[in-house]
């Protein structure tokens, strides 16, 4: 079931080729099944968001909407306050990404280059931070933020997201740093350049794909996060998208299926587009980071 290079293909025996005639279609059937399982929910969300409420309640529904009804989007934006919360989400996710990238870059470098007990401690912490359930953290965290007046504020949320997406980002990024040959740096260092200069002028440019992957990871984690926002953000004007959507479900949304679908779709669109645009670079970045960690 693995990729066969052109060379071996020519050397194949007839029996293998015959078996391939059976196996290959089966593989396509399996792939199609995956495409349906993964893609159908999205397709359904898309078509539902364009259906008028009358069509949604019709006894014999069709997959594609009979007429494109855009009113769901307008109403969802208004009812669920999506513009305001979308803006909040963008602010939080972008700030988190910037802060995380800036502080994790030097740290990742240190972890990758200086193998010491710090490295073991950091790796331990990274795993540990995954094990602990948020419930244990949230109450004291809430009180810490309260003392500095950052409860119910986007700045507080950015700080929390920064800290909690840092471990994983750091782990991935140091994998990428480790894959850059040390010789390149040493050439720069002998010129008398300081460590920071080396970092900025030699390591940074080589980290391109890795940085794209890790910053996308941070962005999406912050964009998607729900639990901390649920507890920390109380002012409706500061709600992020997941929060206002969850509250929309609890009120009007259950009756207005079309609006709910439209709102959910709108909330996903930015990260989805972003994602599809840089998907190719992302995959390669993630792949190398994942394996070399």
């Amino acid at each position: 079931m693995t990729a066969v290079t052109a060379g071996t293909a020519r050397r194949r025996t007839p029996s293998i080729r015959r078996r391939n005639r059976v196996v290959r279609p089966l593989q396509y059937v399996a792939l199609a099944a995956y495409v349906v399982f993964l893609g159908f929910p999205l397709l359904f969300l898309l078509t539902t968001s364009f259906k008028s409420s009358r069509e949604l309640l019709a006894p014999n529904p069709t997959l594609l909407p009979q007429s494109l009804d855009l009113s769901n989007f307008g109403q969802a934006i208004q009812q669920a306050n999506l513009l305001q919360s979308g803006l909040n989400s963008v602010i939080v996710a972008v700030s988190t990404t910037i802060v995380v990238t800036v502080i994790s870059l030097p740290a990742a470098y240190a972890l990758a280059r200086f193998r010491s007990r710090i490295r073991s401690a950091a790796t331990g912490w990274i795993l540990l931070s995954q094990v602990f359930p948020f419930i244990l953290v949230i109450i004291p965290l809430f009180l810490v933020l309260k003392q500095v007046g950052l409860v119910d504020s986007l700045v507080g949320l950015v700080l929390v997201y920064t800290v909690w997406s840092l471990p994983f980002t750091l782990w991935m990024l140091q994998g990428h740093v480790a894959s850059i040959p040390v010789d390149l740096e040493e050439a720069g260092a002998t010129d008398g350049a300081g460590r920071l200069r080396v970092l900025v002028s030699i390591v940074l440019p080589l980290l391109g794909p890795g940085l794209v992957a890790t910053s996308l990871f941070t962005f999406i984690s912050a964009w998607n996060e729900f639990f901390f926002a649920l507890v920390l953000i109380q002012n409706p004007a500061l709600q992020t998208l997941p929060l206002s959507l969850a509250r929309f479900v609890g009120s009007e949304g259950q009756v207005q299926l079309g609006q709910l679908a439209a709102g959910a779709l709108l909330a996903t669109l930015p990260s989805l587009l972003f994602f599809v645009l840089i998907q190719r670079r992302l995959t390669s970045g993630l792949l190398s980071g994942a394996v070399k960690g």
Binding site: N81, F142, L143, K146, V151, D152, L230, V231, Q234, N235, P236, A237, R247, V249, G250, S251
Partner: peptide
């Protein structure tokens, strides 16, 4: 005027009272 939600008003108030907000 702020808009809350019936759906989670209880949890929200517990949190708000506790946090002094």
């Amino acid at each position: 005027l702020r808009q809350g939600s019936w759906d989670n008003v209880h949890d929200q108030l517990v949190t708000q009272f506790q946090g002094g907000t």
